[in-house]
Design a protein around this nucleic acid. Structure first.
Lengths: 338, 338
DNA sequence: AACGTTGTAGGCAACGTTGTAAGAGGTTGG
DNA sequence: CCAACCTCTTACAACGTTGCCTACAACGTT
């Protein structure tokens, strides 16, 4: 069985409170008392009961990270960075999957993990601002989306500008019929809406038509969805000379579909993605993409949470912006481009 | 602020314990009392404090899953299945990353997460049996490796047989100079040792020489390591006609290196992996691999943990085996094969 | 000599929950 | 009409921890 403060206290011949003081690093303990207690702690392999500590102190040292799906590489990479950043604060990270379903996201946001966690870092797909009003749970930091001016702290990247920039990259390479893969119904995802807006902006600025037939929806953003959307574009006869996929997994699926159709990338069709997942650095061809600074996103999120926990919980929500880079790789190489 | 049983009780005009009874589904509560309590619960948005409940009941409803790295897709996919399987038991899953470092794994195994969790599902890379002796933490289930006869429950797949089978597949396609990528020092990983053994078995059974020069080490199993190992094999002049990579990410890296060297897969060199991650179904070419039944692995692990929690904690450790399939795709297609 | 200061140790209560046991109120059977 | 039994509700204690307060000793200061 696990031992308690009481067991350690009896073994060291001191009171429970003194053991607690030693364990918590209280300074006014005589060196020999401290030594006796520490020896007893070691002998019994004592470790504090976090639930009891939490009940008493109101802090668990555990934060939650809620993402749509872990096997979307972008979220897995993000999760790794959050875990690393949280470790600097001595926090453990509990990872939750919402499946991107609004209902489940609402449950998470309203605190399914309850009093077990001190705070929540949350990457919503489908959640809307009204889902977040009047929540009384643990402090929350939202990631990567601009759920319009909800009441929570946020770390965002400028999706519109990034999408505009990568679309521009395609335009400057001489592409004129640029397809987009990944559009969604408004209530499904803010990312899709923003990236589509950036895409449309860039076309307009270049004097190109926005052609509905070139925009392919994808309700989920997996490889299979990207492949299916690409096949759909190819068979519909719209003949794009470039494709902007709203994330990298969609783009990898599109690459596959283009390969199956006997089209060369970038020779016949250029392809770009969004997220800079590791796969895209090793795919054939390697994938041009928008690379958000995931490490920075994670660190900013953890810092926001730390400030909220230590500081004023009623202070106005803050929004921090993380940088991104345009990462040009083989899938848009000029040498082979249109 | 969060509300407590006491607040609900006052609002409903009953005692704290009656509210507790209603919340816990105790049957002997008059319908009108129950209704009043439920209304108060709803109005106050009451949710129980899990730390307090745990302190009282000794269960948190949280289990931990410890894996080396989340952005290795195999572990991300596994994590998803564990979360799903655990949900059937009403458990939340806390995910921990060990980085595959033995020190960190030892900390996790000895219970860093302490009393916060009811049990642990653990996929160790570097841990040895002796690290597991004499642990008094929460019940533990080991995944995927055969840490030789430690004291814990296990779910394994037969790595040796699977490696033998996929090597055999290459041999039957006519390949004779089959390289292996991913060998490691003994203390780094049991998987590497077992898969290498299966590879050697198959060669021996077919009367082929085991050539040290064809075995390339990879201390980590990321794409970059696979690419580097493949480049090493190519420049060393050993001229393999097939490559068995000890996991799929290594194989994806190898595909990349072969592509850069101007070699066709499977035309010039056949490639196989291990794990059946999603990427391998969309890579160019698609990747032949061993497909462990991850969903089953996860479910068995959760069941073992459930049995241990509800049953005899001192019962002898059990070992369950999960099935795997040989998944043949383009990277070893006979039509284009050697 | 009286006093405050500092260092050290421990007693007590409380965090929010639930198990136990007992109490309050109603119903049934003799 | 009372005893015996239900059904429903409640008071109390306990889970392991730490914050607050007090106790006392050993100083140094006036």
């Amino acid at each position: 069985m696990r031992h308690r403060l009481k067991d350690v206290a009896e073994r060291a011949g001191v009171s429970v409170k003194t053991v607690s003081n030693v364990v918590n690093g209280y300074v006014h303990v005589r060196p020999d008392t401290r030594a006796r207690v520490e020896q007893a702690v070691a002998e019994l392999n004592y470790r504090p009961n976090l639930s009891a500590r939490h009940l008493r102190k109101g802090r668990t040292g555990v934060i939650a990270l809620a993402v749509p799906e872990l096997d979307i590489p972008y979220f897995a990479e993000l999760a790794r960075h959050v875990v690393t950043a949280a470790a600097d604060y001595g926090w453990t990270v509990l990872i939750d999957q919402t499946g991107g379903r609004r209902e489940q996201e609402r449950v998470v946001a309203s605190g399914i993990t309850d009093h077990l966690i001190d705070g929540l870092i949350f990457s919503p797909l489908a959640l809307t601002a009204e889902d977040l009003t009047g929540l009384d749970g643990a402090p929350m930091v939202l990631l990567g989306e601009r759920v319009d001016h909800g009441p929570a702290d946020r770390v965002v990247i400028d999706n519109v500008a990034a999408a505009r920039e990568i679309t521009n990259h395609l335009i400057q390479l001489g592409h004129r019929r640029i397809a987009a893969i990944g559009s969604q119904r408004t209530d499904e995802g803010a990312s899709a809406r923003l990236r589509l807006a950036g895409y449309a902006d860039a076309l307009r600025a270049a004097g190109l038509d926005f052609d509905e037939a070139l925009v392919a929806p994808a309700s989920a953003w997996h490889r299979a969805d990207g492949a299916a959307a690409m096949r759909g574009l190819l068979t519909s006869g719209v003949r794009p000379d470039a494709v902007f996929c709203f994330n990298d997994t969609l783009a990898l699926g599109a690459l596959r579909a283009l390969h199956e159709a006997g089209l060369r990338v970038p020779g016949d069709v250029a392809v770009v993605g969004f997220d800079d997942i590791e796969d895209g650095r090793f795919s054939i061809p390697t994938l041009s993409t928008i690379a958000p600074d995931k490490e920075r996103i994670a660190r900013l999120a953890v810092e926001l949470l730390a400030n909220r926990l230590d500081g004023d919980r009623a202070a106005p929500a803050r929004e921090l912006s993380a940088p991104y880079r345009l990462e040009i790789r083989e899938s848009t190489h000029r040498a082979a481009g249109g």
